[in-house]
Design a binder for these strands. Structure first.
Lengths: 145, 145
DNA sequence: CCGGATCCTAGTCGATACTG
DNA sequence: CAGTATCGACTAGGATCCGG
């Protein structure tokens, strides 16, 4: 407790730091932590977007492409398969002609929505602040040369 | 409202879907959305880990390296600079000899902790479930093939 | 001790063409 | 419509050497 920097932190944040503490303790191998794999996956270029699109309602393959215009078929296929593999989305084929395939979040996938929304909301609320910080930083780098 | 798939969603999740709905509306350009840049940054290989380490207390450069054994100097330097540029961490140089440099979260950086923790906790709680889903999926791929 | 500069490899992703 | 296969560009990131 005393080892933590709790000077100006509300107590909620302090317990949060303790939570991370467990996480970084020696018995926990940060280098090979399975949580890292999950975060890597979530952090990849398309996963989050696709999950958000499917959060609205089930979509067909082409619908997702239209919703995310700059994704290629290749990446869409691949990311959908990864998400299916992880049990976050379900794939359902209708034997129509031409065939159609529907993707939807599983209940498990829906459980990810709330944590994800927390982060997205933070990003939304702070994007201008980050943009300003970047501009200020870049400007400061040039003047004192 | 009726367009949403609210069949088996608790109402909290429903409003969450509506939140995403705004986000994906036509006026909002998903392809060039600034939020994507932020999530990309957060999702990169090292950012999250470094933020978590600094959440515990300020660290010196070498301390962070020890906390995250498999990061290279190159990537640590680069990621720290990016985080500083975004205003999430502060860099302080002590003119000792040899010099030492301390990194700590800014107040802004601390505001990221809670959303981040939400996601990390989810990942922690569900890692075994994902591992099982992957194993099942991979097994199913081989047998009917 | 901190970290910049350079070189180089390995994985990632987009474009294109093709299948069922 | 919903993919698969192949190729080539791009880049993240590790190794190494060097400077303050």
């Amino acid at each position: 407790m005393t080892g933590l920097r709790a000077d100006n932190l509300p107590s909620a944040q302090e317990s949060l730091a303790q939570r991370f503490q467990l996480w970084t303790s020696a018995e926990f191998d940060l280098a090979h932590c399975p949580v890292r794999h999950i975060l890597d996956r979530l952090g990849d270029k398309w996963t989050t977007l696709i999950v958000i699109v499917l959060a609205l309602r089930p979509h067909r393959f082409s619908e997702i492409r239209r919703a995310i215009p700059d994704i290629s078929k290749r990446m869409l296929t691949q990311t959908l398969r990864d998400l299916e593999r992880d049990g976050l989305i379900a794939r359902r084929v209708f034997p129509t002609k031409p065939p159609s395939v529907e993707y939807r979040l599983t209940a498990f996938g829906e459980s990810l929505l709330e944590p994800l929304a927390t982060l997205v909301v933070w990003a939304e609320e702070n994007q201008s602040r980050i943009a300003k910080a970047r501009a200020a930083f870049d400007a400061a780098e040039l003047s004192p040369g």
